[in-house]
């Protein structure tokens, strides 16, 4: 049985269809990424999965239950919202204790979970400081662990790394990888392809409220990523007219720089080296989720 099953979800705001027939399953222990640009419908989908928004159509099933607003189900779901959902005038410890109490924790169990969360977020030594005095990265980490205080088996993270420095971002990645190792089911939204590639077992490409493709990263690359790109910069004054043997591969020349997309990049390299010319630069670029998105939508993720 899937941990999460979403079937044909729809949500409109006036004439704008924010989510348009979104369906996916998430297996237990799996991390599913929802990758798409801003406005693709990722956060709206998450909001409907956790019951914060009522869908116009479609259904959501989490842990076999179809009403995500039921308190018994909510106690098994953790959410890290995109916006910082923290009380800035409270300390990290007070924030965690407050949310813990809302989830029914008390006494020794609450204290233990607060200690765990502070350590997990790397905030143990700043526990008594008010959140408004934290850096953006520290606030993001706290925002994440506030959704984990009740030890939920299902996690929904809505762009948890927005606006953080590379160091904090890496710390958040490591935290999420640790959660994955613990076997939690995670839905992770992002518009950074590197995050989806690094963290997600499968990725759904969303655009304009629709899922355009859903597969493993490798599967998506195979299906929609196109061929790898070989780039060679010939040393000296080497140029296209001197290598007519490469014309069969096509590609683009820019002085001594030659770029060509080919399904078998090793064949291209071997042919280029066979001429005996020296290279000042050689690289093979694998297709990325960026190129998958470009192929599927004709736009880049940043558009």
């Amino acid at each position: 049985m899937s941990a999460i099953r979403v079937a044909d979800l729809e949500k409109s705001y006036g004439t704008l269809k924010a989510v348009d027939g979104v369906s996916f399953d998430v297996a237990r222990g799996e991390t599913l990424g929802l990758l798409g640009p801003n406005g693709a419908g990722k956060s709206t989908t998450i909001a409907m999965v956790v019951g914060a928004l009522r869908p116009d159509r479609g259904s959501v099933t989490v842990d076999g239950e179809t009403d995500p607003t039921r308190p018994s189900l909510r106690a098994r779901i953790g959410v890290a919202p995109q916006s910082l959902a923290l009380y800035e005038e409270l300390t990290a410890e007070e924030n965690l204790a407050f949310f813990g109490r809302l989830y029914g924790l008390s006494g020794a169990r609450l204290r233990a979970r607060v200690e765990w969360a502070l350590a997990f977020a790397g905030l143990a030594d700043r526990r008594g400081d008010r959140v408004r005095n934290y850096s953006g990265g520290m606030q993001r980490r706290l925002n994440l662990v506030c959704g984990l205080i009740h030890d939920p088996p299902v996690l929904l993270m809505d762009e948890p790394t927005v606006g953080v420095d590379p160091q904090s971002r890496n710390a958040i990645f490591e935290s999420i990888e640790a959660l994955k190792r613990e076997g939690r089911t995670i839905v992770y939204t992002t518009h950074y392809m590197e995050e989806a590639e690094r963290l997600c077992d499968r990725v759904a490409i969303l655009d304009r409220g629709k899922i355009l493709a859903l597969d493993t990263v490798e599967g998506l690359l195979r299906a929609h990523g196109g061929s790898p790109t070989v780039e060679i910069v010939f040393a000296g004054d080497s140029a296209e007219p001197r290598r007519p043997d490469l014309a069969a591969f096509g590609g683009d020349w820019d002085g001594p720089r030659w770029r060509v997309r080919h399904a078998r990049p090793n064949d291209v390299l071997q042919r280029a080296m066979s001429g005996g010319d020296a290279f000042s630069h050689v690289s093979i670029e694998r297709p990325s989720l960026e190129s998958v998105f470009l192929t599927l939508t004709g736009r880049t993720l940043r558009d």
Binding site: S72, R74, I77, V79, P81, L84, F99, Y103, C146
Partner: peptide, 14 residues
Amino acid sequence: VSGTFLRLRLAPVS
């Protein structure tokens, strides 16, 4: 606006 209300509503309280 800040999102804490959302977090409150996502907690197992009515």
